[in-house]
């Protein structure tokens, strides 16, 4: 029982210290930049096929040290037109740079390719610059059924 009391005291002391420490620190402040994206989707060759175009926005790089990684998701949206404008909140606390992935749902099944139907083209455009209030991007669709990590970082 005495041991229990001593350990309890040690744990409570540690907890108090941690409370004090946690009160002195805080999560990184969330900061956003409103960005208007003017975009254009094109195919590597030929006209853009019909179908809903699905987009996903990313910061290009996020975190530091061992956890540093490319392509941290910001948000998704869709468009029925290859020329589009989209306004979003860029999370300045979640990295640097910018990337946009697009794919066209050519068979209108809502899925970016199935194991047997491989007709939906995809592509990625990126910039290492963190966007300011407005950015223009052209996304060239080069490969069917390929997600963002297939394109970036590119092979040397």
């Amino acid at each position: 029982m005495k041991i229990f009391t001593h350990k309890s005291y040690a744990v409570l002391t540690s907890i108090t210290a941690l409370i004090v420490l946690s009160a002195c620190s805080g999560a990184p402040e969330e900061k956003y930049q409103t960005v208007t994206l003017n975009g254009n989707v094109e195919l590597q060759a030929g006209p853009v096929p019909a179908g809903t175009i699905h987009f996903r926005l990313y910061t290009l790089w996020f975190l530091e040290g061992d956890l540093r990684h490319p392509l941290e998701e910001i948000e998704d949206f869709q468009s029925d037109s290859a020329n589009f404008t989209h306004t979003f909140e860029y999370p300045l606390h979640k990295g640097t740079g910018f990337a946009i992935h697009a794919w066209i749902d050519t068979d209108d099944d809502g899925v970016f390719c199935t194991p047997s139907v491989r007709t939906d083209p995809g592509g990625l455009a990126w910039t290492e610059e963190t966007p300011s209030s407005e950015i223009d991007m052209t996304i060239t669709l080069t490969d069917n059924c390929r997600n963002a990590s297939w394109f970036y970082p590119p092979a040397p």
């Binding site: 990684h69 490319p70 392509l71 990590s149 297939w150 970036y152 970082p153 590119p154 092979a155 040397p156």
Partner: peptide
């Protein structure tokens, strides 16, 4: 009693 499973990093696979 504990058996490890190895893994690999894939976020920069092209490089």
């Amino acid at each position: 009693r504990l058996y490890g499973f190895a893994s690999f990093r894939a976020d920069q696979w092209n490089l």
